[in-house]
Amino acid sequence: MGEIVTVGVVGCGLMGSGIAEICARAGLDVLVGEVSPEAAMAGRRRVVASLDRGVRSGKLSEEDRDAALSRLTFSADLGDFADRHLVIEAVAERFEVKTATLATLGKVLRSPDAIIASNTSSIPVMDLAACTDRPDRVIGMHFFNPVPVQKLVEIVPTQLTSGHVVDHVTEFVTTRLGKTAIRAQDRSGFVVNALLVPYLMSAVRMLESGFASAEDIDAGMVLGCAHPMGPLRLLDLIGLDTAQSVAESMYEEFKEPLHAPPPLLRRMVAAGTLGRKTGRGFHRYDE
């Protein structure tokens, strides 16, 4: 199996733009896919804004920023991904969207050695791999937000993933991207969300019941448990719609009541108050 040199990232939202950025900064040829030219340009602006923040903070030189941007190409046609060695799917956390994307990638990738990875945070990877014609080449690569800052990637092989693919992807994550990789079984939520989601849903239920205010819940966990961020602010950062999707996926798999999204979370998602990205969630973000 050859070295991974060409990378594709499908989806350039919050997660996809971060994955594309770190791959470009690692010296890789990166093709980014979106549903339309307009969405692709919006994704590019997101990457540029992140790189510019790195320059302003002194973590990145202007030369390195420009070099990273020169390695990025954007497209609205998945057919352009045919030559990629590795394609990372980072589309919306919805089963039908992900399976459609992976099925198409399985058809367009030319090399039989090409690897398809999903950045899913909760959907069992085998359920996604089953829609492709190369399930042995499909693996979970779960990054964390914000991708350029967070050091962890969960590696999630399925029952059919080739051992060579697992080793190759793990080496790529650790050596080329400079992240820490942990191995997770292919169960909804993997390692981190299996522990995190019940905690976050419990915080929503505590607020919903009137037991404590959002400010006091967050202050309690920050000052009492030395967490860097309270659970409700963390939900705002993740995005309430994403958190609901993850919780629903985990509840579907395990039928554990602690995983189920509380009514308050569902109502907030229906209202469009999704957290930082909309300026309002459990807290307000005037900026």
Rank of each mutant, 00 (worst) to 15 (best):
G210W: 03
A49Y: 07
F95R: 13
R284A: 13
I22G: 00
I238S: 00
N193V: 01
D136L: 06
A243C: 04
A92M: 08
T174E: 15
R267G: 04
G58Q: 05
H164Q: 11
R53A: 07
E38W: 00
L223T: 02
S70D: 14
I123M: 13
N145Y: 04
L258P: 02
P257M: 09
D136N: 14
E38S: 14
A219N: 11
I155G: 02
S122A: 13
L177S: 04
I4A: 13
H259W: 09
A114S: 13
A130D: 12
G58E: 06
C12H: 07
L240Y: 04
P231A: 01
R84F: 06
E34M: 14
T73R: 14
E62S: 14
P262C: 07
F143Y: 10
S209A: 12
A82Q: 14
E208K: 03
V48F: 02
G106H: 00
A20G: 08
L51Q: 04
L196W: 01
V156T: 05
A219S: 14
I19N: 06
A214T: 02
L72I: 12
D29I: 02
T120W: 08
T158H: 12
P261L: 05
A271K: 07
N119Y: 06
G58H: 03
V169D: 00
D167W: 05
T180S: 15
S75L: 12
R45L: 14
P157V: 08
G106L: 11
L51H: 10
L223H: 15
S245R: 09
L258W: 01
E171G: 14
L232H: 03
A76S: 15
S50G: 13
E171P: 01
S111L: 01
S202M: 03
A194N: 09
I22C: 02
K98G: 03
N193C: 02
A92W: 05
E253L: 12
E208T: 06
V165M: 00
G281Y: 06
R187N: 13
K59S: 15
Y285G: 02
A26W: 02
L105A: 03
T175R: 11
M141E: 10
G16W: 07
T99I: 14
G210A: 05
S162D: 15
R267H: 02
L237K: 08
F172S: 04
R71Y: 07
A181C: 13
Q244N: 11
A184P: 11
R187D: 09
L28Q: 06
S57P: 06
C12T: 14
G54L: 10
R65Q: 11
N145F: 05
T120C: 01
R45V: 01
F190D: 02
L69N: 11
L235I: 12
D186W: 11
S57C: 09
G272W: 09
R46C: 04
K107E: 12
G275T: 00
A219M: 13
P146A: 00
F190L: 03
L102E: 01
D218Q: 05
L78K: 14
F74P: 05
A40R: 04
S57K: 15
A92P: 00
R176W: 04
